[in-house]
Write a protein that binds this DNA or RNA. Structure first.
Lengths: 148, 148
DNA sequence: TTTCGATGGTTACAAATGAAACCAGTTTGG
DNA sequence: CCAAACTGGTTTCATTTGTAACCATCGAAA
């Protein structure tokens, strides 16, 4: 344990990123294979399915995406006719986005798959470990928030 | 808690990715500002600093990078004269990579910064929470491994 | 009201990434 | 011995991403 050496494998930012990336990549296979969605597109679909109607800005906040990602994802889903835009009555810069029937159908099909993925992953851990995951993630979220 | 709705904010793959991405991004500012390194370059530097000498394949395994990323990162660090390649005696496809004095100096400068980052982040959590992080991450790593 | 800074969203351009093709060299099985 | 399969590593090409500039609209303040 030399003091001037960094052990990459146990360095938290790396370890966490590697884990998250692996999980996310594994999960992404599902919506990629199924519908050819990118991650931003999946998040957009998911956000709108969950909340019903949102603006692009709200979508970006909810799903931690840069506005260009949102913009492009929305454009693609619109092209597929999975969502529609409705101009805001009062503020003409804003558009309210909502899923079409087709979009909603895709969403409804994806939800169980997503839940199953999470369930199957967590099924391989003990109740105690699941508690640790929850507390650990929450603690880091807060810590990062404070640190900035 | 409707059964046919997925709550993105608490969906583990999303939440974990978002956390890891935020932390990694925050940390990357350090090596980006300091030396203009990309993440693959930082990992390469870090891997070689830690282990002394590695082949490109080993680097990829250690730091979970696709071989094209390794290839490009190595090329860039070589261009900066931060590392050198030495052909393997027995297998002429293989090159052994090692940091130069300059590369090592950069590594030595980065290590304390990396450790400080991690320490400062964890300092904002309780000992109990740090334990939870450790157990949680380990559990998920295993669970994912089993799942595949 | 006009002007000026902020805001919602898109676009253009450069850089990073991933997949697949590729080149060299190496191993294996007939 | 030799072809075929495999491995280490690079390159090419298409796609994705990030940054910054941009356009339109809005709100506040002069």
């Amino acid at each position: 344990m030399e003091p001037d050496i960094l052990e990459l494998e146990s360095f938290l930012p790396y370890r966490l990123y590697r884990l998250a990336d692996a999980i996310s990549r594994e999960f992404s296979k599902i919506y990629k294979e199924r519908h050819g969605l990118t991650r931003p597109e999946w998040r957009t679909l998911s956000g709108l399915g969950q909340r019903g109607t949102m603006t692009a800005t709200e979508l970006g906040e909810q799903s931690a995406m840069h506005k260009t990602k949102v913009s492009r994802a929305v454009a693609e889903l619109e092209r597929r006719r999975w969502l529609t835009r409705t101009p805001d009555e009062n503020d003409r810069r804003v558009e309210h986005l909502a899923l079409t029937k087709t979009g909603l159908a895709a969403y409804r099909e994806m939800v169980p798959l997503a839940k199953a993925f999470e369930r199957e992953l967590l099924a391989r851990t003990s109740a105690e470990e699941r508690g640790a995951v929850a507390r650990g993630v929450a603690a880091l979220e807060e810590a990062l928030e404070e640190k900035r």
